[in-house]
């Protein structure tokens, strides 16, 4: 199908940009992946998921699947060479199926319900982490992945306060419990005036921002979009490093390359 010889293997620019070595812990705690309608950033989550599960160190993942059912992730990751069902049975992956998550019933509107719902969710995550750390814990790194934040907002019926509180709690987990948090968020939803508060808050608490955008010329067969990785020296701090490159998503992984370097 592909007559041309495969190009020499590019260094993984995303890993480089994020300062990820072989295995071990990432040098950051809270990463936001921001995408838009034209370019989905879900592949970055798949990348993190695969990476966290495949390292030799006993990485574990807690995955909050709000956007897709487990079967979707299972099929996608299988094509990338990672069997989620097996990882789930080995307790390396804790998949929390939240596709049907709704804190409110269809008609009643109670602030309390949202709060209780978020507390339940947080406690579930906490229980998983404690379970991971209790039994023969050997310093493995835990990654919490949320796909995606906009669904959490819908489940909370638009209550920004509760969502931010929840993220605050999860953020505190990362410093107490040796784990990192990766959250997919749709940037274009929050870029209008009324929702800017959310975005600036998220911007503040994160220490890594990964933005996936389309090229201004639109999506192309060879370049699916461009990615900007912003590393801050501390949450809310100054920008330490900024990387920019282009990507092409494939079934078995993602190719990253510098603009113009492919041709």
């Amino acid at each position: 199908m592909n007559p041309s010889p495969s190009p020499p293997r590019d260094p993984d620019l995303l890993e480089e940009a994020l300062g990820l070595g072989r295995g071990g812990s990432p040098p950051w705690r809270l990463a936001f992946v921001e995408d838009c309608v034209e370019t989905s950033g879900a592949f970055v989550l798949h990348h993190f998921l695969k990476r966290a599960l495949s390292t030799e160190g006993d990485g574990t993942v807690i995955f909050l699947g709000l956007a897709q059912p487990f079967s979707h992730y299972d099929r996608v990751l299988r094509k990338m060479g990672c069997n989620l069902s097996v990882q789930r049975n080995k307790n390396k992956l804790h998949f929390i199926d939240l596709l049907n998550l709704e804190f409110l019933g269809a008609d009643e509107k109670g602030e309390n319900d949202i709060e209780i719902g978020f507390m339940d969710l947080y406690n579930r995550i906490l229980r998983y982490i404690e379970a991971i750390r209790s039994k023969d814990y050997n310093g493995g790194w835990t990654t919490i992945i949320i796909d995606d934040l906009s669904h959490l907002e819908i489940a909370a019926h638009g209550s920004v306060k509760h969502v931010l509180d929840f993220l605050q709690y999860c953020g505190s987990l990362t410093s107490e419990m040796d784990c990192s948090l990766v959250i997919l968020n749709h940037e274009d939803i929050h870029s209008s005036d009324e929702a800017l508060q959310m975005l600036s808050h998220l911007d503040y608490i994160s220490d890594v921002l990964i933005k996936a955008e389309t090229l201004s010329t639109g999506i192309a067969a060879d370049v699916h979009g461009q990615m900007t990785v912003i590393i801050k020296d501390a949450p809310g701090g100054l920008i330490k490093k900024l990387h920019s490159f282009q990507f092409k998503v494939k079934e078995n992984g993602v190719e990253f390359f510098y603009p113009g370097s492919r041709f």
Binding site: E38, S40, R75, V76, I219, V249, E251
Partner: peptide
């Protein structure tokens, strides 16, 4: 056509 459904795949349709 703005977006084409991509169930069970991460590759966008071009």
């Amino acid at each position: 056509v703005h977006k084409v459904a991509q169930n069970n795949s991460q590759v966008p349709t071009v």
